[in-house]
Design a protein around this nucleic acid. Structure first.
Lengths: 180, 180
DNA sequence: TTTTCTCCATACGCCTGCGTATGGTTCATA
DNA sequence: TATGAACCATACGCAGGCGTATGGAGAAAA
């Protein structure tokens, strides 16, 4: 008697729970039966909503594609402000809200062993850097320089997710100074 | 008849091949029987050299601990030159020889799901940054600033391993300019 | 109320991988 | 040349995970 549940379940529940597992154990940990156990459901449900395990992985990637791009740019823009304020807000997001041990890092770990994921990451990286570059140009930086520095800032952000380097307020202020 | 081998095998062979697999498939791919297949040997050999799978993983980590630290600093130092030349050489190593799709990234992926590995990474990061900081101080940069900029440079290097951002010669020259 | 459609449970066969037990080689040493 | 140690092969039991087949249960429509 392993505790049933009253409500039924949709595709989205499976995807949501799968993403949680991706965070905790990596893509190798995203397996059907442990997932079913967490959701208090059996495999019967899974194979109703998905063709197979690969289909779930594809759905996870698709989910990420939708939320990845707008996550940064829109959240920074919708609060308005000067380009300088936006830049600071963007750095703030990178260092707290959006990412540090979340989907962002999990996806990049997955990308190392899946070409499709790597392609999605590449697309997101490209869009984000274009956005950052735009911010820097709005600060009066020459386009060719702005592009390079946008990449540098972005690299440092990504690097902070995968290193054990202490990154305090002083470090991010220094980066802001250097690139702008 | 799945092709035997004439020579025998030592612990090191297992570790070497395991590291290859770590690169290709991540730590989850480092399994005993597939490994034995690659080495054209049976599990019997493995369980002679190692207590269990975890023991192999520990040996892999230990191997990395030995080669990780001296990899950067020593290779940069032994060629001599001015601090400026050393800095350029270090950046060059980071972008070609030592890392891009090698152990460095694989270990960091592993670190996300193993506290022991994360600790080893943290130690290596600390030593390397101290070295870079020393280089910058030798260029006449004030110690407090040198430390922050060393971390920034290091973050960008690590970031380049995990992003799909195009990093050309111009980018690394710009970084060098910014931090020194 | 019956029928139909959606969603899930149960049970099965298969494969892969872990770890153990045990016996067989090969090589050095006495 | 006999003996012991180092190294490996073979065979086993077990657990966990994948995918399928089939039969409900519950709600919605007819």
């Amino acid at each position: 008697m392993t505790a049933k549940r009253d409500t039924r379940i949709g595709r989205d529940e499976w995807i949501r729970e799968a993403l949680k597992l991706l965070l905790a154990e990596g893509i190798a940990g995203v397996r059907v039966e442990p997932l079913a156990l967490r959701l208090k459901v059996t495999k019967g449900s899974f194979y109703w909503h998905f063709k197979d395990r690969a289909a779930l992985h594809e759905a996870m990637l698709e989910h990420w594609r939708r939320i990845a791009t707008r996550a940064i740019a829109e959240r920074v823009d919708q609060a308005g402000g000067t380009p300088r304020e936006k830049l600071r807000r963007l750095i703030g997001f990178g260092t707290s809200g959006v990412a540090p041990g979340t989907l962002e890092t999990a996806m990049r770990g997955w990308a190392r062993h899946d070409a499709g994921v790597a392609a999605a990451i590449a697309a997101a990286d490209g869009e984000r850097i274009a956005y950052v570059s735009g911010l820097l140009r709005a600060l009066g930086i020459k386009p060719s320089v702005a592009d390079v520095r946008a990449r540098i800032l972005y690299l440092a952000l990504i690097g902070s997710y995968f290193s054990q380097v202490p990154t305090g307020r002083a470090l991010w202020r220094e980066i802001e100074t250097l690139v702008s």
